[in-house]
């Protein structure tokens, strides 16, 4: 059974068709890229898959379950985590709390437990804490646990955002332009990080990315969209030589 199955996904905003008849099937433990020129509808696809928008037509099923009508936090609870194109960390909370709060779906205690500080509460808070610290340790960010995100460099903020998404223990990780705004050293670090996450966790990674270096060195499969429609799907090599893709990016060679 495939992990994510998107069939005939369409999303209209008034007269604009942002996504048109989009299909994709992702299996367990894959690394796939979604590329396309600006405004092609890539982020809209992610917003639809993460439950932030409801599809106008078509269906999204995750682990065999139709996500129609679910609220975003419920979709996330099924195991879809994502990062954002512009970083969206909680700015007034330190890094550790950012990672802790993201575990809301697996809190495992009630409001009453919280007021009474029951055994269950203490156990669960400890477990949440452990997950957060393990993740910070593994991602080499223990030093900035008590920093506010806005005091960190852009590259580090990205890493925190990815750590926050990973704390959900997702089976599908959506990365929306993880390399945007990073300098070349940070991009190298990011490639290593994504590779490490892929090797360490049983997770399928689906990323939107404009930097071909990142896409080509990480992904085994690439899907190209333009104006909401899929124009190509294949291995990095196939995509590089695909005339439709070249046309979409560079324009027609006949003037």
């Amino acid at each position: 059974m495939s992990l994510l199955e998107v069939k005939g996904l369409t999303r209209r905003f008034g007269g604009l068709i942002a996504v048109n008849d989009f299909n994709i099937e992702l299996g367990e433990h894959e690394l796939v890229a979604l590329i396309g020129p600006n405004g092609a509808g890539k982020t809209t696809v992610f917003n639809l898959v993460s439950g932030f928008y409801q599809p106008s037509e078509g269906s999204i099923s995750f682990k065999g379950k139709d996500t129609k009508g679910l609220r975003p936090h419920q979709v996330t609870g099924l195991g879809v985590a994502r990062t954002f194109q512009g970083i969206r960390l909680w700015g007034e909370m330190n890094v550790l709390d950012n990672i802790r709060v993201a575990q809301h779906y697996t809190l495992g205690y009630s409001l009453l437990d919280c007021f009474l500080r029951t055994k269950n509460y203490l156990l669960r808070e400890k477990a949440i804490d452990t997950i957060a610290w393990e993740l910070l340790e593994a991602m080499d960010m223990k030093d900035c646990a008590y920093e506010l995100p806005r005091n960190l460099s852009y590259g580090l903020q990205r890493r925190v955002e990815i750590a926050r998404a990973m704390s959900l223990k997702p089976s599908l990780l959506l990365l929306d332009e993880p390399a945007a705004g990073l300098n070349s050293a940070d991009v190298e670090g990011l490639i290593k990080l994504v590779r490490w996450i892929y090797d360490t966790f049983p997770v399928t990674i689906w990323m939107i990315e404009h930097q071909m270096k990142v896409v080509m060195s990480l992904c085994s499969r690439i899907k190209v969209v333009d104006f909401g429609t899929t124009i190509a799907d294949g291995t990095p090599h196939e995509i590089q030589t695909n005339p439709t893709v070249i046309k979409a990016y560079l324009g027609d060679d006949t003037i």
Binding site: P72, T76, R88, W90, E92, V101
Partner: peptide
């Protein structure tokens, strides 16, 4: 406070 600081991120991050 997560809602206060970024409601969309909160909703997506399972709150």
């Amino acid at each position: 406070p997560a809602i206060c600081q970024d409601e969309i991120a909160a909703e997506i991050m399972s709150v």
